[in-house]
Lab assay of single mutants.
Amino acid sequence: LVRYRTISKIPQITLNFVDLKGDPFLASPTSDREIIAPKIKERTHNVTEKVTQVLSLGADVLPEYKLQAPRIHRWTILHYSPFKAVWDWLILLLVIYTAVFTPYSAAFLLKETEEGPPATECGYACQPLAVVDLIVDIMFIVDILINFRTTYVNANEEVVSHPGRIAVHYFKGWFLIDMVAAIPFDLLIFGSGSEELIGLLKTARLLRLVRVARKLDRYSEYGAAVLFLLMCTFALIAHWLACIWYAIGNMEQPHMDSRIGWLHNLGDQIGKPYNSSGLGGPSIKDKYVTALYFTFSSLTSVGFGNVSPNTNSEKIFSICVMLIGSLMYASIFGNVSAIIQRLYSGTARYHTQMLRVREFIRFHQIPNPLRQRLEEYFQHAWSYTNGIDMNAVLKGFPECLQADICLHLNRSLLQHCKPFRGATKGCLRALAMKFKTTHAPPGDTLVHAGDLLTALYFISRGSIEILRGDVVVAILGKNDIFGEPLNLYARPGKSNGDVRALTYCDLHKIHR
């Protein structure tokens, strides 16, 4: 019993810090008490220290592992850092350059016999395009090294910054494609005289377009951006097909006994025919423009016929181009109408809503002055909100995010209106959640004399007048207030005048 009563005193000691020596009952000389009392004092002292730490809000209350900052290894790049964003855009520009100039170089340097010394005699450094290609190869190699040090988000939505895990993730992902696209074939085969082989191998750079397509997928929600990307894709495919079309004609031209190829026909049409040795002929500019003209006309199913396939190889390629053109029509131009419709969806919704308003007016036989006010209010409210119901949009977000959005939407009023000066951010967040926005066209009466005042109004834009009878008592403008002081009276009061809008007004109100 003594032991039980001794232990039962522990909660009292913990909360009230009572010393055991003052209790005459606990001072009985028993061996059990002498053993338990020192333990009680020690526990009391420890609990006292913990309570003191909690009340003082000291940093040592938290466990040590929670006080440590997340460790980022040296030379690790955050995937959302500004440097990584700028670097990704730079790589994107280099990939676009590669997609345009690599097929052009591979096709127009394929057994090209233009006048001038061969590239091997001039030297590697004197070729501007080769120098640019070398810079692109170096940048792609540097990009691989950067990807080995860039964080990523795993399946659990955690940012991984450990170098080993980053390397394994990159090896399992895009490393092989990036490595093949970054191989400097110019340096590996330079001086061997195989410019045709170098041009063909350099087309491996186009593998990076797969990554670019995935990154550009984030802009699919913007109709104008999608339309622009589709047109660029169409032009890029036409450019690639033009390079292939020229390569076919250029390879067949020296081996044909009869002059029936499209390059021969082009030379005869523009007065620059090929001679018996295969030299001469149109310039590279004429060849490229004509090839691009043929691919565009074939892809769009126009086909004027002034550039036509004559050999079997050219006919087979033309059939493939027609098939590609039909697929592009289905996948690209078939979506253009939907994209344009999405661009004008706001206008369509406006006309639909206006039609419903006019049908309501016609069905209920609203008189002319009231009908005009109804239409003007709808037009003004639509121009202010673009038909978007803010309350319906915010309803799907958590309250903390709703408060931040409301604070942002009402920031101008909260910053410049005098009653809100000096208020804490928590108070402003709470008030912003209570605001209701209303609009009024010129001549609209917001409050009639004798109406119950259940709200306090803040003028965000425009001006109003307060009338008693036919006498203008006051004219209020931006950041002015009218209405009933909230919670100042037990019952809502009545208006002693009319409140009429002089201009288009936007008002925020808080109800009782």
Rank of each mutant, 00 (worst) to 15 (best):
Ser192Arg: 14
Cys122Phe: 01
Ile138Asn: 03
Glu359Lys: 04
Leu327Tyr: 01
Ala291Met: 01
Ala291Phe: 01
Gly280Ser: 04
Glu376Trp: 09
Val100Tyr: 01
His239Tyr: 03
Gly443Ser: 03
Gln353Gly: 08
Met328Glu: 03
Gly443Lys: 03
Glu121Val: 15
Gly249Ser: 01
Met251Tyr: 13
Leu413Thr: 09
Ser192Lys: 11
Met139Ser: 07
Gly271Ala: 01
Leu266Asn: 01
Asn386Tyr: 07
Val302Pro: 01
Pro254Asp: 15
Ser412Arg: 10
Thr445Lys: 04
Leu374Lys: 01
Ser383Tyr: 15
His408Glu: 06
Phe190Met: 12
Arg259Tyr: 08
Arg371Glu: 02
Ser161Asn: 07
His169Lys: 09
Gly199Met: 08
Gln341Met: 11
Ile177Gln: 01
Val86Glu: 01
Leu145Phe: 10
Gly280Ile: 01
Phe294His: 01
Leu90His: 03
Met179Tyr: 03
His448Gly: 09
Val302Leu: 01
Thr233Lys: 04
Arg342Gly: 10
Tyr222Arg: 04
Phe175Tyr: 01
Asn368Gln: 12
Ala449Thr: 15
Ala440Asp: 01
Asp286His: 01
Lys84Ser: 02
Ala155Asp: 10
Tyr104Lys: 01
Pro273Gly: 01
Lys84Trp: 05
Ala238Pro: 01
Ser276Ile: 06
Pro441Tyr: 04
Trp240Ser: 01
Ala423Phe: 04
Leu216Gly: 04
Leu209Ser: 13
Gly443Phe: 01
Leu263Gly: 01
Leu230Lys: 01
Ala125Trp: 15
Arg208Cys: 12
Leu78Tyr: 06
Tyr222Ile: 05
Phe378Asp: 04
Gly426Asn: 04
Ala330His: 15
Leu209Ala: 08
Glu157Asp: 12
Ile248Trp: 01
Phe363Asn: 04
Ser412Lys: 07
Leu323Asn: 01
Val142Pro: 02
Cys122Gln: 01
Ile135Pro: 01
Ser298Met: 14
Gln127Gly: 05
Leu414Ile: 09
Pro117Tyr: 06
His239Ser: 01
His79Leu: 01
Leu216Pro: 01
Pro419Phe: 08
Ala449Glu: 10
Ile244Ser: 01
Arg358Met: 04
Ile361Val: 12
Cys122Tyr: 01
Leu93Ile: 12
Leu414Val: 07
Gln68Phe: 13
Ile91Met: 02
Ala181Thr: 04
Pro117Phe: 06
Asp257Trp: 01
His351Val: 03
Ser313Gly: 04
Pro419Ala: 09
Ser283Thr: 05
Asp137Arg: 10
Asn312Tyr: 01
Lys111Glu: 11
Leu227Gln: 03
Phe294Gln: 01
Gln353Met: 03
Asn312Lys: 01
Ile388Tyr: 15
Asp257Arg: 08
Gly422Tyr: 01
Asn312Leu: 01
